[in-house]
Amino acid sequence: MSEDISGIMQDAESKMAKTIDVTKEEFTTIRTGRANAAMFQNITVEYYGAPTPLNQLASLQFPEARTVIVTPYDKSATTAVETALRESDLGVNPTNNGDNLRLVLPALTEERRRDYVKQAKNKAEDGRIAVRGTRGNAKKAIEKLVKDKEIGEDEGTRAEKDLEALTKKYIEQIDQALAAKETELATV
């Protein structure tokens, strides 16, 4: 395999691996029966006119499986944090204790579990689309090498087969992560 093809393949593989990491991280933001810090990762709070991530404004504690205590570092931001939590897709209504906010995550209903599974499937499909996009870009690069006669057609065909195998491997990893998340969501 020529250096050009190995470079294209390495680049494609690293991009596909990053896609897997991003997809798995997206899965962690989907709520399951237990509270975890990743659920709050995408929540931003309007703080002095700028959208600020919640984890930069407050500490999170998890005393029980479905209870979260949010303690803002700046007490003047408590109202803004409370509003951001109420408007988030977590479906919670924070209780303001003066110093902190107490969240009790509602038990997941069957309908809510189905919604979360649907969300997970959408995130998995986004990951698959990204992997296929990477494959398409790599395939174009290989075809360009063949067209410019930098490599032979046989070598180009072999590289495309290797690229297909690589794509299949990463799509299977996304499918496995999705199956694990679906199982996690189905567990009461």
Rank of each mutant, 00 (worst) to 15 (best):
N55A: 07
R66P: 04
V146I: 12
K140S: 15
R102C: 12
E82L: 05
T83F: 09
D154F: 02
A80W: 06
A107Y: 09
T79K: 15
K75N: 09
L105C: 03
L105I: 11
Y47A: 13
Q119T: 11
K118W: 05
Q61C: 03
T78C: 06
P63E: 00
S88W: 00
L145A: 05
T95C: 01
D115Q: 14
E155Q: 15
I151Q: 06
A130G: 09
G91C: 07
G49D: 11
D115V: 14
E82R: 10
F62A: 02
G127N: 12
Y73R: 09
T79D: 12
S88Q: 01
N137P: 02
K144N: 14
A120C: 08
N93F: 04
D126Y: 07
D74F: 04
E150I: 11
T79F: 10
P53C: 10
N93C: 03
L145H: 01
R135E: 00
Q56Y: 06
N100I: 01
L103V: 02
Q56R: 14
N55L: 12
T71Q: 11
V104H: 15
E64H: 08
S88V: 06
E64N: 04
N97Y: 10
L57E: 01
K121M: 07
N100A: 12
I129Y: 10
K144T: 15
R86A: 13
P94K: 04
R66N: 06
V70N: 00
R132K: 13
T52R: 13
K139F: 07
Y48F: 15
T78N: 13
P63I: 00
V104D: 14
T83W: 05
A124I: 08
G136C: 02
N122I: 08
I129T: 14
D74G: 13
L108H: 04
K121G: 13
I129M: 14
A138F: 05
K147P: 05
L101C: 03
L101Q: 02
L57C: 08
G152H: 01
K144P: 09
I129V: 15
P63S: 00
K123G: 02
V131W: 10
R113P: 00
K118V: 04
E46D: 15
G91I: 05
T134V: 15
K121V: 07
S59E: 10
L101V: 05
T95R: 10
K118Q: 08
K75T: 09
A120E: 06
L57H: 03
D74N: 12
N122C: 03
V104P: 05
V92Y: 00
I142G: 02
V117D: 05
L60Y: 01
G152W: 00
K123Y: 14
L60G: 02
N100L: 05
E64D: 04
E46F: 04
L54F: 11
L85N: 02
N137C: 01
E125Y: 10
T134N: 13
D148P: 07
T79N: 14
E87W: 12
E143M: 10
R102Q: 10
I69C: 04
L103K: 01
A50E: 13
R102M: 12
S59R: 12
E111H: 13
T71H: 09
T67H: 06
N137M: 12
Y48P: 01
N96F: 08
A138Y: 06
P53F: 06
D115H: 08
A120T: 06
R132L: 03
A84M: 10
D126T: 13
A107M: 09
P51C: 05
A130M: 09
A130N: 14
E155M: 11
A124R: 08
V70R: 01
L54W: 03
T83Y: 12
Q61P: 02
